[in-house]
């Protein structure tokens, strides 16, 4: 289905220019990556119900699992951070609060991702 009007096509990407397209693509890319990664995690995590540390480390440190966990962490916090950005921009109407919340959300996402990846790497030793 073609949803763009002839006028819209003539005017091009609008005020957001190429940057808006880049943000749009980044949102979809992280979302697509999360489909297989989260389904894999859910199917694996179910078997960790009631597990002890030895069993958990066997799973978290084995084969490609640390790599998949790190990819999941990156895609998850990247996606979460962009999603919260949209919600903040839509519902917070005070410019200063918007800027402060966006900074906190983005730095918080970086911190959580770095801390989680560090933990995953430590589990492999």
């Amino acid at each position: 289905m073609e949803l763009r009007s002839p006028l819209g096509r003539a005017r091009g990407p609008g005020s957001a220019k190429e940057g808006g397209i880049g943000q749009w693509k980044a949102e979809r890319l992280a979302a697509i990556a999360l489909v297989p990664l989260t389904l894999w995690f859910m199917a694996s995590a179910v078997f960790m119900v009631g597990a002890d540390l030895v069993t958990f480390k066997e799973w978290a440190g084995a084969h490609g699992n640390p790599v998949l966990l790190i990819l999941l962490t990156i895609a998850l916090y990247h996606h979460a951070q962009m999603g919260l950005q949209v919600v903040i921009e839509d519902y917070v109407h005070h410019e200063g609060v918007v800027i402060i919340s966006l900074v906190l959300v983005k730095l918080g996402a970086f911190f959580c991702a770095a801390y989680t990846i560090f933990s995953i790497v430590r589990l492999t030793f």
Binding site: T73, L76, A80, C112, Y115, S119
Partner: peptide
Amino acid sequence: ALIFTYWISSAT
């Protein structure tokens, strides 16, 4: 996501 981070990091 924060529960996920807590769960993974607790193992370390």
